[in-house]
Design a protein around this nucleic acid. Structure first.
Lengths: 341, 341
DNA sequence: ATAATTTGCTAAATCCGTTTAGTTTTTCTA
DNA sequence: TAGAAAAACTAAACGGATTTAGCAAATTAT
């Protein structure tokens, strides 16, 4: 590896002080009363030699990094990767870079990631938190690191977060199915104590109870292999032939659910109507197109950035109230949830 | 922000030298003949105080970071996010973290990202390179930074890369359609001079020429908005009503293509057969399921990591031949490309 | 002509680890 | 029991920037 040129090298070559160079490079030439002549000379030299500041040294000294750490559950998931992309775009415009990592919902890994980000002086965190990192998150609070949670949050902690109204999301989905005349509406979800999942279940239950109908609930273990999930849904459908509509709590479940529906030789929506939670680009072109509870991706990512920058501007978490945004999801009605006729 | 504890602090508190602490923390206690008693004392203290090394300082001194920079075209794209996820998993097991960024195929942004990674001492790069960064890439070569290109490469540069045999991928797709009896096979692709796109076009052309058939080519500008893409494909189909099969060069085009096919009121595969390039989880559950040229994701990500680590082990690029792997894609045949009957 | 400013620039401390080249103390050998 | 060798640590330089405090020369004010 070619050793890179440093400010010291430039200082030696041009026979001036390192401080002077630093001021010039940081655009503080005027402020520090460096002559235009010298400033130009340095800048030219820098350009000629293709000099780049060592960001490590800079961050070490300043404590700032112009980097935001984004910690998502699984970057391969369309929801998270879309958010990541949108956040990256916005942050980039503000001169910040994003580095992202996946937790795979593993608290140990997540804690490691948080510490790695901390020890690299990221300026802020955006986190989808698995259960089990409550301590680490409250450490972020007390240590006054700017951060925002999203997708889910810890009710017991007073943190900033941006989430969607999951309860309402599930509720309007079920209510739409009710209006269409479906009566035996199932909810296929993950067995999870994460807030977003709990709320979706609550929304489903609320709508079913209000309509005085019978719930049909299938909770699947997070660890199940895809084929296992298909089998579980498949046998669930076989056992409950009266089910005429299904709300899937996540896209991943919807995917396996479609497979199960195929295996049971059911037609959407004639035999069974379907709604997914989280929209997906492909849902629009499915045959039939799939109705979905859609999270406001743009709004979500903008809010995340806004909240985080607010915190960063204020220099941390102990300055005032926490900011908690709850965005409204939208039901995008397509043919998969419409009664024939 | 609470100021964090440093080795100096520990040194002062325990009244020993900073070097000693460093040796102990780095597991060099034996080697440096530090007594077990002192080592234990320090380790206990470190645990008690929840001390974490400052990774910036460490990297600054050592030049290593245990971080790999992954630069993809668009993390929101299922292909790239899947690769990212798989690479992350493997790297994590080796004690490396991944930080990833999207280029959006913008050379300027990509160069910035590469420089940012460089200035943060990442140990290696994995890059999907847009055109226009050839100079930067050859700089990586001369500066002896370990890196691997993937998805596409620069024929004029002698670098490591892992790609798939795009020509064969497109060719076997068309040949399959020919075997099924389709005669008017269209290729919908992006106007691009990136190698993967050029090769896919070559594969299509080769298969069509060998069969002595008429090509039907639609090249779409990369910058087109989604709706524009739909319209272009739609009117392409309207103008060429004889087309009985389409190979889409990317998933994104397939998505817009499905929409266009719907608008033209065509049925898959009866009116028009369809094959996508790059498989997608949802293709399996489409109605009908969609045939796809599938990249060997596991193999791809493993190869990338293997090649990169080889380079990193050798300490850079000027030690020996470049490693260029070409993986074979697989045609996953589903109903969308089967002739009725 | 001298003091007070202003201009233009620099020295040195600092951020926090790593690592080389010792130094001091203890133990062993002759 | 002197001298060699081993054991147990440590001082200080280094990596590459930022930033405070301050110095010398040139201007301006008096």
């Amino acid at each position: 590896m070619n050793k890179k040129i440093s400010m010291d090298d430039i200082a030696r070559d041009l026979n001036i002080s390192k401080s002077t160079i630093s001021f010039i490079i940081n655009g503080k030439a005027k402020e520090m009363r460096i002559s235009d002549k010298l400033a130009t000379k340095v800048l030219d030299y820098v350009k000629e030699k293709n000099y780049n500041r060592n960001a490590l040294a800079q961050s070490l000294r300043t404590g700032k990094s112009k980097i935001i750490g984004l910690i998502v559950e699984d970057i391969a998931d369309a929801f998270f990767s879309s958010v990541a992309r949108l956040i990256e775009e916005r942050a980039y415009k503000k001169g910040y870079k994003i580095i992202y990592c996946s937790t795979e919902d593993n608290p140990k890994k997540t804690i490691e990631l948080i510490n790695m980000f901390k020890s690299r002086n990221v300026d802020g965190f955006i986190i989808t938190a698995p259960r089990g990192i409550e301590r680490e998150v409250s450490l972020l609070l007390t240590q006054n690191h700017p951060f925002v949670l999203f997708d889910r949050y810890f009710p017991e902690l007073e943190t900033d977060y941006v989430i969607i109204d999951n309860l309402t999301g599930a509720k309007i989905a079920v209510e739409h199915l009710l209006r269409e005349g479906f009566k035996e509406i199932a909810f296929v979800t993950l067995a999870s104590d994460q807030t977003q999942m709990v709320e979706r279940l609550n929304g489903y239950n609320m709508a079913i109870t209000e309509a005085a109908l019978q719930p049909h609930l299938l909770e699947i273990k997070f660890t199940s292999k895809p084929e296992k999930v298909v089998q579980q849904i498949s046998s669930f459908l076989a056992r409950n032939k009266n089910i005429d509509a299904i709300l899937f709590a996540t896209n991943y479940l919807a995917l396996q659910g479609f497979e199960a529906i195929n295996r049971q030789n059911l037609k959407i929506p004639d035999d069974v109507a379907v709604i997914g939670f989280d929209d997906h680009a492909f849902f629009k072109v499915f045959n039939p197109p799939i109705t979905a509870v859609s999270q406001p991706m743009k709004n979500l990512s903008e809010s995340l950035i806004d909240v985080l920058f607010k915190r960063m501007g204020e220099g941390g978490n102990n300055s005032g109230e926490s900011i908690q945004k709850v965005l409204q999801p939208e039901l995008i009605i397509r043919k998969s949830s419409l009664k024939k006729g």
